[in-house]
Every structure is written in structure tokens, then in C-alpha cells.
Design a protein around this nucleic acid. Sequence first.
DNA 1: TCGAATATCACATTATAGTGTGAAATTGCG
DNA 2: CGCAATTTCACACTATAATGTGATATTCGA
Lengths: 70, 70
Amino acid sequence: MLVSEIGEQIKERRDTLGITQPDLAEMAGISVNTLYKIETGQANPTLKVVNKIARVLGLELRLATKKPGE
Amino acid sequence: MLVSEIGEQIKERRDTLGITQPDLAEMAGISVNTLYKIETGQANPTLKVVNKIARVLGLELRLATKKPGE
DNA sequence: TCGAATATCACATTATAGTGTGAAATTGCG
DNA sequence: CGCAATTTCACACTATAATGTGATATTCGA
């Protein structure tokens, strides 16, 4: 999964939950700046930061075996 | 998924494939130092680095919806 | 058991992720 | 339309991930 795709997914999920960037950033304990950059694919975040965001969004980072088709 | 768990999973997979740290590092285009730290849970890697390693190991980073049980 | 391969570790340096500030766009609702 | 909330953005600064080097441990097969 590309970094930019992770960003899109985060934005999608955030919109679904009706949360603003400042609110999600606050809840995740990161800066709005960082969140904005991640969502727009301008960042290469660390696992910790992605995990913080994921937890708030009810998502989870996984390292899964890649199947040929996907 | 915790950072340390990602490291364990990477080491497991690497051992399964019978690849050495230097070889995996070389194939992934990162330093042995970085790989070692990730495997031993001493690092907080970026998505790019994890992706590089995952590709070589036939793994894939996913942001999945977390289910209540897990 | 001895030696080569491999893994662990410390340390200094470089590259870059993350923050803070403040301002400009954009969106959306009254 | 106006106005407030939200998002996008630039810039300088700080924190830290990643590298390079070299040395020490550990593993493991001949």
C-alpha cells in the first residue's frame, strides 16, 4: 500500500466519521500540519504516527501476506 | 499493530525465507543497521522503509478496519 | 573447536519527519 | 451574499529516523 493511498484512506474514514482535521489531530496527538500532509500524500509518516491516527479511526495497521492477484 | 510486532514479523518471515540481514537490507535498499533496529523493536520506521522491506518479503502493509474482538 | 558468517551494538553524522506559526484558499451554512 | 469553519500552504525550527563505520558478540557448519 502506497503512502498516498494510506492518506486517502485516512481522509475517507475521517469524512465518514464527520471529524475535522484539527479534531482528529488533537485526538491522535499529532499536529494538524502532519495530518494534512499525510492525507494529501505529502508525507512519509512513521509507524507510530500512523498507529495513533488508526486507533482514533478504529483502523489497524497490518503486515499481511500479499496474494498474487492483488 | 505495535512497532515491535512488525519487527518480529519481519524477522520471522526473513528466517523462513532463509535470507540474512545484510541480504534483505541490500534487496530492500536500506542499511543493515536500520533493518536490525526494526527487527529488534528499537526503531520507529517510516512507511516507505516498511514498504521496501515488505515488498522483498512478499508482504503488504494494510490499513484495515479493526474488529471488536482483535 | 575453530573460523567464517551473521547478528548485535555504540557513536557520530546526515537526511528528513514532525511541529509551530501564521496566512491564504476553500467550503458550507445562516 | 457574508461569515465562520475548515482546509491548504509556506517557512523556519526541532526531533528523530536512517546511514556509515567499526567493533564486539553470537551462531553454526566444516
